[in-house]
Design a protein around this nucleic acid. Structure first.
Length: 346
DNA sequence: AAATCGGGGGC
DNA sequence: GCCCCAGATTT
């Protein structure tokens, strides 16, 4: 069997990562949320900053959502940050600040799905449950040369059921070993089978078919969208607003923009109406291309000046100095626009 | 079952 | 350019 061989390989070869220094449920949880769809190298700095700012779940429960988003800015998938805050509140108020130690109880918490519940239950609490992420889907499909489509959610469920009886007593080591192997050796392209501790047990490898697995079908085609965005000055401040719920990047601060309106005249008219301002003729200050998961924005930037500072009676619209802007949670696309439009490096 | 939701890194 | 990443949630 490959299970113990793999665990031993992990004990000897695991990377030294900040969240592996102890098994505190708070640390494991925070790292697992950050690692969702995010590479280890990207996560490390954010994890360190969070632990410094919020050393305990109490400190996180006592923070505001804005505080959390501010620290999360640039990491993406901002719903994770909002659910992180909600989860901390639930654990603090309803569980006395103590994380549940059972898979099914963890699964009920905001932002914790089947993978993360399995990861926390096994790594922090030694529960013998699997944790099937993208790495494990790939590794397991290769080990047994399975043609299941790993893009289909039913496959993850099926793999969890097949893995459950294999999970050893040291479940946390086992689950992390599978993921570590997927990240370091059994990679999506060019797997390093010659370095793999369990290649002898791998059906895909022994069949000479390691490149045939895993099978993955769907690919999403991104939609292109042109955006007219205004950098609207009044004296030394510029107009920004907090994106409302139900919109992309909600909860983060944005510059005013209009989809499908990239002509100066039309954009100025629409922005003036949206924010009830009188605007000077705009000056084109460049374009920014930004790729989201399912969208590609082609942002045309224009600088305007507002004749007066009256703001519409709407919450979360402000005039901000560049210093004040720096204190807000901004998405990466807005930072790129500010860098290009006013040479402001945040 | 399909769509939504960021940003960065590797090739 | 494409693919993937220690996925969850909503429709």
């Amino acid at each position: 069997m490959w299970v113990e061989t793999l665990c031993q390989w992990y004990r000897e070869n695991q990377r030294d990562l900040p969240w592996r220094h102890d098994r505190a449920p708070y640390h494991i949880w925070l790292s697992e949320i950050m690692l969702q769809q995010t590479q280890v190298a990207t996560t490390i700095d954010y994890y360190q900053k969070f632990i410094e700012a919020f050393p305990t779940i109490q400190s996180l429960a006592e923070a505001t959502e804005d505080d959390v988003l501010r620290l999360w800015q640039g990491l993406g998938y901002y719903t994770r940050a909002r659910n992180l805050k909600r989860c901390a509140d639930v654990v603090w108020q309803q569980h006395g600040g103590v994380f549940p130690d059972q898979y099914h109880d963890l699964l009920k918490l905001p932002g914790i799905g089947p993978y993360t519940a399995g990861a926390i239950a096994s790594i922090a609490f030694d529960r013998r449950v699997p944790a099937v992420d993208g790495n494990v889907l790939r590794v397991y499909a290769r080990l047994y040369a399975l043609s299941d489509d790993i893009a289909d959610p039913k496959t993850a469920k099926r793999f969890r059921e097949k893995l459950t009886p294999l999970v050893p007593e040291e479940s946390g080591v086992f689950n992390q070993a599978l993921m570590e192997l997927g990240a370091m050796v059994c990679t999506p392209q060019n797997p390093k089978c010659n370095q793999c501790p369990v290649s002898g047990c791998c059906k895909a490898y022994t069949d000479g078919m390691e490149t045939a697995f895993p099978v993955k079908t769907k690919k999403i085609k991104q939609k292109h969208l042109t955006i007219g965005m205004g950098i609207i000055w009044h004296e030394d401040k510029l107009l920004c607003f907090k994106q409302v719920e139900g919109r992309l990047l909600h909860g983060l601060w944005s510059l005013p923009f209009v989809p499908d309106l990239v002509e100066e005249n039309a954009l100025r008219t629409q922005l003036a109406e949206d924010f009830q301002l009188v605007l000077s003729e705009g000056r084109s200050t460049g374009r920014v291309r930004h790729v989201f998961t399912h969208l590609i924005w082609d942002v045309h930037i224009f600088c305007f000046e507002a004749k007066d500072a009256n703001l519409i009676d709407f919450p979360e619209v402000r005039w901000c100095s560049t210093d004040e802007l720096e204190a807000l949670a901004l998405s990466t696309v807005i930072k790129k626009v500010l860098a290009k439009g006013i040479n402001l490096l945040l």
